Amino acid sequence: MKLFLCLPFLAAVQAAIVPAIDPKAHFHPSVPNAAKPQGKNVTINGVLTYVSLPKTSFDNTTALVLLLDGFGLPSIDNLILADQWAAAGFQTFVPDYLNGDPIAADGDLATWLLDHGEAQTTPPLLAVIHALKERGIKRIAATGYCFGGLYTTRLVQNNTVTVATMSDPSLLNVPTDFDLMKEISHIPIEINNAELDPGFSPAVAAETDKVMANGQYTPGYARRQFNGVAHGFAVRANASDPVQVAAKQGAFDTSLAWLKAHLE
């Protein structure tokens, strides 16, 4: 445990080339989600955390840490996603690593990012992970969405978690982040990307594959592209659009299968 506390959070050397996507470019449902969150907010090691637990018996030595997009805990879509992971059998923890300051749907992304760099967001994330390990949780799966993809990448680079998956990650340096991952990590990673994402685009995904695919990343790597959808597809879908609905469910199913396969 002391090793975990002392382990530095490694960062890519160069500036990120996968941009964060303006919040106004995300799909935002006009009709409120009829589903009600099943979890509750608790404080873990000083950090507000949404916790959603399975309704049936589960392995209490394994946990899933969900790394949210920039809309954070106020977004009901994010909470329902956490509940979906709990329904799949994982005790699910969603730390507020945005420090109570999510971006608004019409917010100024450039200004918001100035106060939400790794120096601000890493400490609360690691505080929750440390507390979970102190509780006796031995295996932690991470799943990150958009803004959370960067932090999933860091957790993999630092070998902090057991297995990870991410969907349309932003703020990454490609290929530098994956070169570093290949050099020092032993954590399996799976990526879901959207055909119409201007950030982690098919071209960027192909650059990632050049580093990671075809057995180059021996711990395990997979990527799945979902066509006809845009950035944020794995969190929000227009219920009247069957392509969006299928892609959102497909990303979840792919991620779930990956985590289960590497936690057995």
Rank of each mutant, 00 (worst) to 15 (best):
T143E: 09
D168P: 01
D177M: 11
P124S: 09
Q157K: 07
T153Y: 04
T153V: 02
H130N: 14
P123C: 09
V161T: 03
K138Q: 13
V161A: 01
P175F: 08
I137K: 00
F178V: 03
C146G: 12
Y145N: 07
G136E: 06
D177N: 14
T121I: 05
T152I: 07
F178N: 01
N158K: 05
Y151T: 11
H130F: 05
A141S: 12
L126V: 05
Y145P: 10
L150E: 13
L125K: 06
A131S: 14
A141Y: 08
G136R: 02
T165R: 00
V161M: 04
T122R: 06
K138C: 07
L171A: 03
M166W: 02
L180Y: 03
L172F: 07
A142W: 09
F178K: 01
C146L: 02
L171W: 10
E134C: 02
V174E: 14
M166D: 08
G148P: 08
T143G: 00
L132Q: 11
T152K: 01
A164Y: 07
R139I: 12
L155G: 06
F178S: 00
T122W: 06
P124A: 02
M181I: 15
T153P: 02
T162M: 00
V156Y: 04
M181A: 13
V161W: 01
N159M: 06
V128E: 12
N158F: 00
T176K: 08
T122P: 03
G144R: 04
L180F: 10
V161F: 01
V128N: 12
G136S: 10
F147P: 02
Y151W: 13
Q157N: 12
I129H: 11
C146Q: 08
T121K: 08
M181P: 11
E134T: 06
R139H: 15
I129P: 05
P169T: 05
Q157Y: 00
N159H: 14
T153E: 15
M166I: 05
L172Y: 09
M181L: 15
V163S: 09
I140W: 05
V128P: 13
T165F: 11
C146D: 13
Y145M: 13
K138E: 15
G149W: 02
T162N: 12
A127Y: 08
I137N: 02
I129L: 14
H130P: 03
G148L: 01
F147K: 04
A141L: 09
M166N: 13
L126A: 04
L172T: 05
N173I: 03
L126D: 04
V156R: 03
D168W: 03
M181E: 11
N173A: 15
Y151I: 09
T122Y: 06
T153Q: 15
V163L: 02
G148S: 07
A164K: 11
S170M: 10
N158V: 06
E134L: 12
T162I: 01
I137Y: 00
K138P: 11
K138N: 08
L125E: 08
T165G: 14
T152S: 09
S167T: 06
I129C: 06
G149Q: 06
L171C: 08
T165E: 13
Y145V: 10
S170L: 05
V128F: 14
L125S: 09
L172D: 12
P175N: 02
N173P: 06
P175T: 03
F178G: 00
K138T: 14
V128L: 15
A131K: 12
E134N: 07
M166Y: 01
T121H: 00
A131D: 15
Y145H: 13
C146T: 06
T160K: 02
D177Q: 15
